[in-house]
């Protein structure tokens, strides 16, 4: 039983690390602020949640890790929303191949 838990915890940690790496590659490769914000926020949030869940399994059901997951899931999208809102208000344009910007049309 405990061996299964250990293997499962390690698998969770490896998957979380891979998601983190994907998020950071997205942060480097994508063209403008909003796309970078999307890719990195999604991937890094889920990756860190997986690492925390793996540590929850590996450390003998340490419930503090679940509390940390709850805080990450609550705060990270909120921070991303605040940054996107502020970037749009400070006048940063979308990428030049963007299709539509309803918010810019409605703000006028």
């Amino acid at each position: 039983m405990s061996e299964i838990v250990v293997i499962l915890g390690n698998v969770f940690i490896v998957v979380g690390l891979l998601f983190d790496l994907l998020g950071c590659i997205g942060l480097v490769r994508l063209p403008d602020v909003y796309n970078r914000l999307q890719a990195s926020t999604k991937c890094v949030t889920l990756g860190t949640c997986f690492i925390l869940f793996g540590s929850f399994l590996l450390m003998g059901f340490l419930w503090k890790a679940i509390l940390a997951i709850a805080f990450v899931v609550m705060t990270s999208p909120t921070g991303a929303h605040a940054i996107a809102h502020a970037a749009h208000h400070s006048g940063i344009k979308l990428w030049k191949k963007s299709v539509v910007d309803r918010y810019e049309e409605d703000k006028k």
Partner: peptide, 22 residues
């Protein structure tokens, strides 16, 4: 969502078409 992002990021030609909708 993460698998979707992984596909878009690792694809060499970046298949994205961004925009803000309502």
């Amino acid at each position: 969502a993460n698998l979707d992002v992984a596909y878009r990021v690792l694809h060499p030609r970046l298949p994205i078409k961004p925009g803000i909708v309502k």
